[in-house]
Design a protein around this nucleic acid. Structure first.
Lengths: 253, 253
DNA sequence: CAGTGGTCTAGACCACCTT
DNA sequence: AGGTGGTCTAGACCACTGA
């Protein structure tokens, strides 16, 4: 008997709302347009504000809406494709990568990071903070852990920290021959610090990309980057130009 | 004195709760253990149940907790690494991949898919449904769109659909020389159908992996796979063995 | 300042699982 | 039947933005 189940179990209101709003967004709104405020919308649909908000949260998670406190809710542009994959030119040390070095401090990394690097748990490494900006919007914040052994020729110049130091570490890291890299992607939530840098509230969903850079069979550096999950589509390979998601669709059944 | 900022701006209760619970999970609970129910927890922390639930939702999003209606809240095991990257052996058509073919029907794909495939918008393609199971748990559901031109030698045998048909399409697709693949990862929410297959509620967060398979310069097939975001860490390369996240950490500052 | 989204409450009922 | 998490309500107050 096919797949159509006609409300044998009525779906939750917020889910139905999400569907209705999705269709409205596809047909009646354009990117950047502001929606009516939550109190009005809730009244219009005859639900409590909390229920309406549950639907909006879904849509924000899916990258369809953008909400800003004190401002309003707007229709979000399609997610931007962010290359995190094969492209060699954005490896650490490349001259014009998409990253902006922000800082560099010596620190003892979390135990799990130390283990992955093969450094001692009390050993300090260089911690480079970088941020990534696309289309004028901050999309990612990164912590790059670089053991001292990966940058042997780093001159112990006057400044032990700061952006210039970060650039120096990246340059030296790039001189060593990075051969390979392995990445993992998982869902996380932005900590207070990441949230601020990404212009989001704490707890905002992020895609956490953990990347291990290999040189000579050992782990030369390890990066933990958090990307805004609402605005980013991470691409591995040259997938930046393909749009698959949402929009009026012919439902395949 | 380190990082302690003394409530210059008081953080939200649910966020503080999340922190407290995270630490409790790290130190006082073991995987699989069941937490007290939400009403008790809320009373214990002196907050409304809705607030407590907001904290639990965060933790579930982060893969720390698992909640099941009618049962309770349990401490989740670490996320499983799921290879979606370079490994050649799990390309469509490989004999022992991680996927279980479930079905195959002819259908007109969504317009965006048709465009990516280079087929006409009214042209029917083979739609193979597969599911992926790891450690006895369903982790992903996939729709694989295969144009008829990619499986030219497919014998029009009796069954136009069903698992055996799916296997036949995959086999023929594997005979063509797939040369390359490009993937993109983004956050989504499970539709009603995916949710059922993944044993989650509608709207559950999923990682949507869109993959384009190339052969002879053209797109031979396109896959849209949804992975459970709470339980999966997607790995590109041989990253399955590395554990970076959570656990008692030495805060680098 | 007025208007927006973000947080929080105290309660109710429902869907689901186990016993 | 009893206990769990999931949904929903109607209200209140707070934090932030922009005019």
């Amino acid at each position: 008997m096919g797949t159509t189940q006609l409300e044998s179990v009525p779906e939750p209101k917020y889910w139905h709302l999400r569907t209705v709003l999705t269709e409205a967004l596809d047909s009646e709104f354009s990117v950047g347009e502001v929606l009516p405020n939550e109190r009005d919308l809730a009244a219009r649909f005859g639900v409590a504000r909390a229920t309406l908000r549950q639907a909006l949260e879904q849509l924000e998670l899916e990258g369809r809406l953008q909400r800003r406190r004190g401002v309003g809710t707007t229709v979000a542009p399609p997610r931007v494709g962010v290359a995190v994959g094969t492209a060699r030119h954005d490896w650490p040390g490349a001259a014009d990568d998409a990253w902006e070095p922000a800082d560099c401090v010596p620190a003892v990394p979390p135990a799990a990071v130390a283990d992955a690097l093969g450094t001692g748990r009390d050993e300090t490494v260089h911690v480079v903070r970088r941020s990534r900006v696309t289309h004028g919007q901050p999309v990612a914040a990164e912590l790059l852990y670089v053991p001292a052994s990966s940058v042997p020729d780093l001159t112990a110049i006057e400044s032990p920290s700061g952006p210039s130091r970060a650039r120096a570490v990246l340059r030296e890291l790039g001189r060593g021959e990075l051969e390979h890299r392995e990445s993992a992607v998982e869902l996380g939530s932005a900590g207070a610090d990441d949230a601020k840098e990404l212009d989001r509230l704490p707890g905002a969903p992020v895609l956490v990309v953990t990347t291990r850079y290999l040189a000579g069979g050992r782990t030369a550096a390890l990066s933990v980057a958090t990307y805004r999950a609402d605005t980013c589509r991470l691409t591995f390979g040259d997938f930046g130009d393909v749009e698959i998601h949402h929009g009026p669709q012919t439902r395949a059944s």
